[in-house]
Design a protein around this nucleic acid. Structure first.
Lengths: 336, 336
DNA sequence: CTGTTAGCGCTTTCAA
DNA sequence: TTGAAAGCGCTAACAG
């Protein structure tokens, strides 16, 4: 049997509620008593019972993070950023993955709600805007990288269009002759970042007076095929690939290197998310950093402020992405 | 205010405990009443309060998974396997990451215990065997891929030595002249799989009569440097790299391809863990599959059986790894 | 099937 | 500072 506050109180020779005060760090406790209680807690190995506390406090100090899974390392990085941001606010993150299956996502969210999560951070969600609004009525919800429908749901966004525009401009300036956008195949899922990133690519091309040269290839099967397709279209390998994310960029880069071409010098590649993949030594992919730490902090704060005012109109916060230039677009410096 | 069982009971015109029976799926409820209750639950949007239930049942039906993080995709795959295995047993996994920091790991474990996790699955733990045994006294613990110290702690292991022996034999049979083991740099952490994998490599080399040719290189900085170092040692590039995990294999493979050599034909590479990295189309790394689904099921079952008998001696279950041969070691078929 | 009674471990309120 | 009392939402054990 785990020791309870009562056990601690008995051992320390104080009242049970005094123990409660000490546990919660109340200031109105004499130093002597506090020490006695702390000693008793230590010798007994006392741990507060979160369920009991949750029951009476009507909050758990947990927030649920729902991701589509961790096969894309971006979400692993995100989970870690959320962990850090949450612990800064003395919260515990509950981490869940939907495996990109709607039904699983629903059940994960249901479980988080039943467990009494104080808020939910949703990313890569498959839910419809209406479904999300409904959840938002039950519990504070903050969307990550997805604009909220009008309602009591908040969002933290990274300016995807801006990010992809940065990548595009960078690639053009680096001097690649042709520029191709490699789009993710699930770009048809509503409200994903794919559309916004593509529009950033298009806008940048237009701005640089090359609107009619803007080519988008949707990756349906192997990335390598899309790469070859691009070389075919231009009848040239002097191409920079603006990729929807690091994973695609990664496969493109490997394909390029495996064909004996030099990454960066012969062919340019940019990724998105600046994950661990991008910084792999042998690759060194130029990528767009979404500022995960800031996004995570923003999301946690959104949840906290909505806890205070459940009826507030939805707010959103926009984070500025930054370009991280690496070897995969470094043509000039490396050109012999 | 969330609706309670009482609210449901009032609406359905039944007793509160009848609602409880319906929620828990008890059989001794007439169909008519059951339907009435379910309707009332639906219209009210009733959700059971997990904290209240946990308080009285003294169990939460959650199990905590503690990983070092998700930068190694293996742990993402593991988390998903645990999610599946847990839900098969009607359990909810709590997923935690220590970011490979001892102090963080401790606090994650503490939180899981306070939250009343029914058991803990530890993997890549930085804790000492003694510390783990102590935790095992508080809550059922199952170690993953780490042999337990003697005590009331269970383990599910994949036979690392056997796995790396499989990879080694495969590479030798494929006909590469020199065989090198690329060891992870944190091989000095006690009880990690690194030692066991290396011993499997050595055993296989010995068995094949090439014990004195067995070379191990520890990756301290860039993998690419280790690769070049190997070429130097042998003054040849006819080498197969037996890598401690897919990430290292991956970097080695990229380095090889970027030097214009053909992966598989010129140089062999094997990984370990059979993660998503290994099956990337442009790479197709031969790797060792640990049988995550079986490991996850085994771990969940270990937890469940220890819940029943907290004092049982520690048990361990060994999973047989399997070789997944792909292009990165396919010399013969591809040789011109 | 229903009602009653009891209590899980904790916070909260109020009076001493 | 402390003690007493109440109650969070639920399950459990029992008698009807």
């Amino acid at each position: 049997m785990q020791p309870t506050q009562q056990d601690v109180a008995d051992l320390a020779g104080v009242s049970r509620q005094l123990v409660s005060l000490v546990v919660r760090g109340d200031k109105h406790v004499s130093a002597a008593k506090r020490r006695a209680v702390q000693e008793a807690m230590a010798t007994l190995g006392y741990r507060p019972n979160a369920a009991a506390r949750a029951l009476v406090e009507r909050r758990t100090r947990t927030i649920g993070l729902v991701t589509p899974g961790f096969s894309n390392p971006f979400f692993g990085d995100l989970a870690d950023a959320i962990r850090v941001a949450a612990s800064e606010r003395n919260l515990t993150p509950l981490i869940g993955s939907s495996a990109s299956v709607l039904e699983v996502e629903r059940s994960v969210i249901d479980r988080f709600i039943e467990m009494g999560a104080d808020g939910l951070i949703l990313t890569g969600s498959l839910l419809s805007p209406e479904a999300i609004l409904k959840i938002g009525e039950l519990v504070p919800v903050c969307l990550l990288n997805r604009p909220p429908a009008k309602g009591m749901v908040d969002a933290v966004l990274c300016d995807d269009a801006r990010g992809e525009a940065l990548a595009t401009e960078h690639a053009v300036e680096a001097g690649y002759k042709h520029i191709v956008f490699l789009e993710d195949e699930d770009a048809d899922i509503p409200q994903t970042s794919a559309n916004r990133r593509q529009s950033g690519f298009l806008a940048a091309m237009k701005k640089m007076g090359r609107a009619d040269e803007a080519v988008t290839i949707t990756v349906t099967g192997r990335v390598s095929e899309a790469v070859l397709q691009a070389f075919d279209i231009f009848n040239s390998t002097d191409v920079a690939f603006i990729c929807h994310n690091d994973q695609i960029a990664f496969e493109a880069a490997v394909e390029i290197m495996s064909r004996g071409m030099s990454l960066g010098v012969d062919v340019g590649v940019t990724g998105y998310d600046n994950t661990a993949l991008a910084s792999f030594y042998s690759l060194e992919l130029t990528s767009i950093d979404q500022g995960l730490a800031r996004m995570a902090r923003g999301a946690v704060q959104m949840i906290e402020s909505r806890q205070r005012d459940r009826k507030a109109p939805g707010r959103s916060e926009m984070i500025e992405p930054t370009l991280v230039a690496r070897r995969s677009t470094r043509r000039r410096l490396w050109k012999k």
